[in-house]
Amino acid sequence: MGQPHSIAISAAPQAVFARYEAVETWPRWDPEVLEVYLPEGLLAGARGWLKPRKGPKSTIIVTEVDHGRSFTVESPLPFGTLRFHHRLEATDTGCTTTHWISFTGPLAFLFAMTAGRSIEAGLPQTLAGLKAECEGTEPPAPSSAQT
């Protein structure tokens, strides 16, 4: 449903996954996240909340974890669900990291056309921040198109 966004990171998948597991640091490298609370950590079934830069604080539930490879977090919506998908694939120089979103439910098309566009527009900057965090470099400045 959502357009996947990928970036090459010069770090092993396990090292990148460790950044995902350090949930409290997400706001440091993801400019779209102001606060996140996931007291059980990145485990299937864990519940908490996330406050995005734009929009209300939302309930999040970790629905799938394949340690070192992928995880999915979902957020309930009226008559639907928003899912954030994260996948890591090993390469000769580190890994390729891919993020994408999907919506389900009777209003999925509406959410995809409204909130989905804004969320997808932020994925490249999120991936750039994750890359900088993992490689110990400075993240690029946000583009004016994403403000």
Results as ranks from 00 to 15, higher is better:
134 C>Q: 10
20 Y>K: 08
11 A>E: 13
92 D>P: 04
110 L>Y: 00
122 G>K: 04
18 A>Q: 07
134 C>V: 01
39 P>E: 09
84 F>Y: 11
98 T>A: 02
50 L>I: 10
3 Q>C: 07
107 L>R: 00
8 A>F: 13
73 V>I: 15
4 P>G: 06
48 G>R: 08
129 G>S: 06
141 A>H: 14
9 I>H: 05
33 V>F: 02
132 A>P: 05
35 E>C: 01
116 G>F: 05
121 A>N: 11
124 P>N: 07
9 I>N: 08
52 P>C: 06
25 T>H: 11
5 H>L: 07
112 A>N: 07
107 L>F: 05
108 A>V: 06
113 M>V: 06
9 I>E: 05
115 A>P: 01
5 H>S: 12
16 V>Q: 03
10 S>A: 15
115 A>S: 10
57 K>S: 11
56 P>L: 14
42 L>C: 02
100 W>R: 04
71 F>A: 04
70 S>Y: 00
16 V>E: 10
67 H>Q: 15
13 P>L: 05
82 L>D: 03
2 G>E: 08
29 W>I: 06
62 V>Q: 05
120 E>W: 03
126 T>K: 10
97 T>D: 09
22 A>V: 07
101 I>Q: 08
6 S>P: 04
52 P>A: 08
126 T>S: 12
116 G>Q: 00
84 F>A: 11
66 D>F: 07
22 A>G: 03
117 R>G: 07
77 L>T: 05
103 F>L: 14
29 W>P: 04
56 P>M: 11
36 V>K: 06
33 V>G: 01
57 K>A: 06
63 T>K: 03
75 S>V: 01
110 L>T: 06
87 R>N: 08
35 E>D: 07
56 P>D: 14
109 F>A: 08
100 W>M: 02
88 L>S: 09
63 T>E: 15
39 P>D: 04
147 T>G: 11
30 D>L: 10
145 A>N: 07
67 H>A: 12
72 T>E: 12
145 A>W: 14
118 S>Q: 13
116 G>P: 04
50 L>P: 02
134 C>I: 10
66 D>C: 09
26 W>K: 02
50 L>C: 04
132 A>V: 03
127 L>E: 02
141 A>Y: 03
83 R>K: 15
31 P>Q: 02
29 W>S: 01
101 I>S: 01
90 A>V: 01
12 A>Q: 06
58 S>E: 05
27 P>H: 12
101 I>C: 01
57 K>L: 12
122 G>C: 01
94 G>N: 07
104 T>K: 11
107 L>Q: 01
14 Q>P: 00
117 R>I: 14
45 G>A: 09
52 P>M: 09
52 P>L: 02
138 E>Q: 15
143 S>E: 15
91 T>I: 01
22 A>D: 13
89 E>A: 13
112 A>D: 00
101 I>V: 11
130 L>P: 03
33 V>C: 05
26 W>M: 09
